[in-house]
Design a protein around this nucleic acid. Structure first.
Lengths: 218, 218
DNA sequence: AGTGCGATCTGACAGACCGTCAGATCCTGT
DNA sequence: ACAGGATCTGACGGTCTGTCAGATCGCACT
């Protein structure tokens, strides 16, 4: 999988030089940091600019608005996903299925912890219908979604999972667990649910839904 | 369950008269409508005011800011939840379990469709850590969460569900499915997953997780 | 080292919104 | 019809946005 270094350009389409790339990166970092502190509605371009000790005009040289900077950050986060999806490669229906599920859940939570604010915002914008954010999210989730759907269909063909279940809907449901719990887990922990509980429980629901094996007493 | 009509007050704590209540309501309705159109970041108090044909100053008479108006709307939405949670009352482990699950999923999606924009915003603010929104969300979800957790524990005691599963974590995971898919379902439908598929599939995952019965070939 | 020129940054400004308050307007009870 | 409280709003200082023209910077070349 070749990674073509995307050619960054400024608001007028001109490619960026060394100095400009540095500035752009500093702006992005500042944006990411602020996204973690203030609520979405309180993010000010002025503040981002101040943080990197430059003028708002500089920000607008690189991004149309805060949203566009966020999009860039979301794209960066999305690049991590393929690696994460590879964890699904193994055979779910052999003995290692549950372990695969655990690994996936754990990795997913880690990923969300690393990009919490950005991913939250990505999902908000996507939910609001912003096409570019819809696309980034889809691009990020597709590897996992497809792989889950494939496994489920396999199990269905083997008669392990009810044909009444729609593989796509099911994989979306499982992804929903991953996303939501990864976003929530801190709150849940403050309510007495261990992170380990979360991983173990989610992994079992995943495993059960994908393979149909209930593992009652294990 | 008595419903004490909460005493509405203006920004200075004074109770509202007839005219004021009407104005407040019109402001809330306008806010709700705009929340559905613009993105969160684009909501302007001026615009809400204009829509109600009044001045921004009037808005501030009733709400500290847009967020507070949203909170009021979220509280209204939350009042629907207890009725919805009652759908869980039946016995999951008897034959009707799957049907209960279907009803729940369907009702939940309906609820989200009715308050989409407000609930999305409620969750955003809650995710961002706003205490008042965290509380509204918790208040709204608790009935369902508790009931699910109770059922799961029952199934565990009956040896139908693995003791490795944490009932609270599991109910949170199931709630995650409900919330996320209710929010997503329009997008999923545009991707070829029927609403019925969604309901049936989610219901089956719920049912399976709560009762441990896999219903393979049904 | 010095110079020229494109690359990069920023001061300054017009336009829009926020949030507040004093005073205007409206309504109700008598 | 009128007093007095309830409700609304004009008007304003402060902050932010988004845009340009002009200032500054630093590399390429001699």
């Amino acid at each position: 999988m070749e990674r073509v270094e995307t050619q960054k350009v400024d608001q007028k389409g001109r490619p960026l030089g060394r100095r400009a790339l540095e500035t752009r990166r500093r702006l992005l970092d500042a944006t990411a940091e602020l996204l973690g502190k203030r609520g979405v509605r309180e993010i000010r371009v002025v503040e981002i600019a101040r943080k990197v000790d430059t003028s708002p005009a500089t920000f607008y040289q690189y991004f149309k608005d805060v949203e566009e900077a966020t999009l860039a950050l979301a794209e960066e986060a999305a690049q991590e996903m393929p690696a994460l999806a590879e964890k699904l490669a193994g055979a779910w229906n052999s003995g290692g299925g549950l372990e695969i599920a655990r690994t996936l859940v754990d990795a997913f939570i880690r990923h969300w912890d690393a990009y919490h604010a950005v991913l939250r915002l990505r999902n908000l914008a996507a939910d609001e219908g912003e096409p570019r954010f819809l696309q980034v999210r889809r691009q990020a989730m597709t590897p996992i979604l497809d792989e889950l759907a494939r496994c489920i269909r396999e199990s269905q063909e083997a008669g392990l999972v009810s044909p009444q279940i729609n593989a796509h809907a099911a994989s979306a449901a499982l992804a929903a667990i991953l996303e939501r719990l990864a976003a929530y887990h801190t709150e849940l922990e403050s309510l007495g649910v261990t992170r380990d509980d979360l991983v173990e429980t989610s992994a079992r629901i995943l495993h059960q839904t994908v393979t149909g094996s209930s593992g009652k007493s294990v």
